[in-house]
Simulated scan of single mutants.
Amino acid sequence: MATNKMILESLSNELFIELFALFDIVDLFRAFYGLNTRFNSLLIHLRRYHVDFRSIFKEDFCRTYLSLIINRTIYLRFFDKEDTPYQCAHFQSAGFTFGQFDNIRYLTLENINLSLQFNQYFFSDLCHLHNLTHLKFIHCRMQGIFCDFFQDVIEQIWNLPKLTHCYFDFCFRGISHFHTPTSVSTSLQYLTILGNWWYSNKFVGLLKKTPQLRTFAVSLQTLQVDEIPSLYGFLPSFKNLSVKRLILYKVDTQRLMINLFQSLPNVNQLKVEIFSIKLDGNQWEQIIVNYLPQLKIFQMKMNTDLCPSTDNQRNEEKIDQFLATYRTPFWIEHHQWFIRCHWGVSMENVCMCVYSIPYKFGVSLIYEKELLDKTKSTCLGV
């Protein structure tokens, strides 16, 4: 009796391409590359690749296979950790630069510790990434670099023609200030900048150079000198009308926050995380009415001291007085924005964590619930 045997090579190219998508990229090349010209062609010419170094443990992948798919790679992610150390060093020692990956769409560097040599080598040809749409620096430590050395990198990034999403989370040697680009980005729409210190006048320049910006997220830390009114009384009345969503982290200065609001009058979504500043409902109402007239979604978290502690009854009265400012028609009737307050006594002060509900912040409230053991809300039944 004749038997039909399935020969692997009898499968169609389309089926192989679907099958290859199930393989880890290292296993895929080790299993199929070099078997015959058909497999080589399928691997190199008919697929696009996501190269994630979090799952690549072997240094020889860079030296042996990466050059074969350099024009087919659309995603690169580096992540230095115990399981995958020195990925950037392997990439560098194999002779690669980012500019060689001219079809790349997504580039992410996470948990990378870069020296000055890495900076010069790694980013010298970012300007060639004409198809890049997403760029992320996540928890990158550039302790061998002063922020001034990064100016050229910022200029290259702002000149990328298709870049729409950019995420900066890095720290340099010394105090880090984000350098305002001199070029105008005609494509950048979503921008996050964390880990840097700011002066009010820097925002004006940044917003001018990013006219298509729709979502802006930034950690709003500043030096105390920025709080001197006369120093920045000359701030121009520039307004960016394209930004609709604003996310503020680590706000420790009301003045800097309001200066930013003045430049972004069309914001309709605000998410803000405040430390050591006490703003009651009346103050927030005045800020929103004066500077954010289009605001529809308001998400706020505020950790601060309310007043010196006296006794339990008086402390609770102070909390009630504070919460009453968030129970006005502006909050309850016009916007239906509600808040919750965790409070308690610490270091002879009434401390509180005030946040909008539902809670929309990534950090857990375990700390607040344990140390600030009393709670009240402006929303009945919550």
Rank of each mutant, 00 (worst) to 15 (best):
residue 138 I to K: 13
residue 61 F to G: 01
residue 105 R to E: 15
residue 53 F to I: 09
residue 307 C to T: 15
residue 13 N to G: 09
residue 161 P to H: 10
residue 10 S to L: 10
residue 97 T to S: 12
residue 258 I to D: 03
residue 106 Y to I: 14
residue 111 N to H: 13
residue 115 S to P: 00
residue 79 F to T: 08
residue 72 R to P: 05
residue 258 I to C: 02
residue 237 S to M: 13
residue 379 C to P: 07
residue 171 C to N: 12
residue 361 F to Y: 05
residue 86 Y to M: 09
residue 275 F to D: 14
residue 133 T to M: 08
residue 136 K to I: 08
residue 14 E to N: 11
residue 309 S to V: 04
residue 36 N to F: 05
residue 23 F to S: 06
residue 52 D to A: 07
residue 143 Q to Y: 14
residue 200 S to Q: 14
residue 374 K to G: 07
residue 196 N to C: 15
residue 28 L to K: 00
residue 146 F to S: 13
residue 33 Y to L: 12
residue 377 S to F: 07
residue 91 F to V: 00
residue 233 G to E: 01
residue 144 G to C: 04
residue 53 F to M: 11
residue 269 Q to M: 06
residue 151 Q to S: 15
residue 211 P to N: 06
residue 15 L to W: 07
residue 216 F to H: 03
residue 172 F to Y: 02
residue 198 W to Y: 05
residue 74 I to T: 10
residue 132 L to C: 03
residue 351 C to E: 13
residue 318 K to T: 10
residue 337 W to E: 00
residue 314 R to L: 08
residue 131 N to L: 07
residue 51 V to Y: 09
residue 54 R to M: 11
residue 133 T to E: 11
residue 15 L to F: 07
residue 252 D to G: 15
residue 98 F to S: 04
residue 250 K to P: 14
residue 205 G to Y: 06
residue 141 R to V: 13
residue 372 L to S: 01
residue 2 A to C: 11
residue 296 K to L: 13
residue 280 D to K: 00
residue 264 L to K: 01
residue 254 Q to K: 12
residue 14 E to C: 09
residue 96 F to C: 08
residue 261 F to Q: 01
residue 339 I to W: 02
residue 297 I to N: 10
residue 202 K to A: 15
residue 94 A to T: 05
residue 22 L to Y: 13
residue 339 I to Q: 02
residue 126 L to D: 02
residue 257 M to H: 09
residue 92 Q to E: 14
residue 350 V to D: 06
residue 128 H to E: 14
residue 201 N to Y: 14
residue 353 C to V: 08
residue 85 P to S: 11
residue 70 I to S: 03
residue 90 H to Y: 15
residue 144 G to A: 06
residue 74 I to H: 09
residue 153 V to G: 01
residue 122 F to P: 05
residue 222 T to I: 07
residue 222 T to E: 10
residue 282 N to G: 10
residue 215 T to I: 12
residue 294 Q to A: 14
residue 310 T to P: 07
residue 46 L to E: 12
residue 330 F to I: 00
